[in-house]
Design a protein around this nucleic acid. Structure first.
Lengths: 127, 127
DNA sequence: CGGTATCCGGCCGGATACTG
DNA sequence: CAGTATCCGGCCGGATACCG
């Protein structure tokens, strides 16, 4: 459960702290761009510019911002080559790969229910 | 793949339309509150106020807004009882339950890597 | 090429007040 | 109790410019 920050007996301060941390992480991860980047990486190693091309519609700023976020949480490893021009590669860590599996599930779900959702939307717009 | 809007041969206009729709749905779903509401519902049936209590920190506005979003996409069914005071109940549909399974995975992931992520963050703050 | 900084318009989202 | 409407401060995120 990530929904409640404080569950059970309020005397256990550690549990509530762990839960609020869980929520914080969840909020970091459950965001469009972070998920798309993780999914785009898959088990490849990609450069900044490759990621940018790979992810339709992401801006320079959003990409760097979310890459830092993922790096900070240890989902992505960043390797800088001191060449000129510089070359920076990104790849998923083990936690990153684990997360990716569940994101795959999310993508599968999206495609599986695509038509059904489209129908539901159409029906909803009649009221 | 939800990352690229246009994949493969550009002659198939239907595929690209399906992909952009997938991205749109993905953007709707991959949002903190929508996911938390879906997770909170689980296989229960909850009233508006119960959901509000269940989800730590959600505002009245965000709850209604995201419930409409979920309803529109057919993930949540809304039942109004014409009593006074009114009573409105929310429950997951079949697509909603399917989605919930993958969100469970996300929550499990969060708890599983909690400590590891906390460490990674600490290490990151030294640079 | 990859990253940071700055600017700033727009919308996100909380607070409040009002209906059925 | 549940929902809508309005107001408005804050930050999100795109555009641009400039370093290593």
């Amino acid at each position: 459960m990530v929904t409640k920050q404080f569950k059970g007996s309020s005397e256990d301060a550690d549990l509530s702290r762990a839960d609020s941390l869980a929520r914080e992480i969840f909020s970091d991860i459950a965001n469009k761009w972070a998920l798309l980047i993780t999914e785009a990486l898959g088990d490849r190693t990609l450069r900044f510019s490759e990621l940018r091309n790979e992810i339709e519609g992401i801006s320079h700023k959003m990409l760097t911002q979310n890459l830092r976020l993922l790096e900070r949480n240890g989902l992505v490893e960043r390797t800088v080559y001191a060449t000129v021009p510089p070359r920076v590669e990104y790849t998923l860590t083990e936690p990153g790969h684990a997360l990716r599996v569940t994101i795959d599930g999310l993508c599968d779900w999206t495609h599986q229910y695509l038509a059904q959702i489209e129908d539901s939307r159409r029906r909803f717009e009649e009221a």
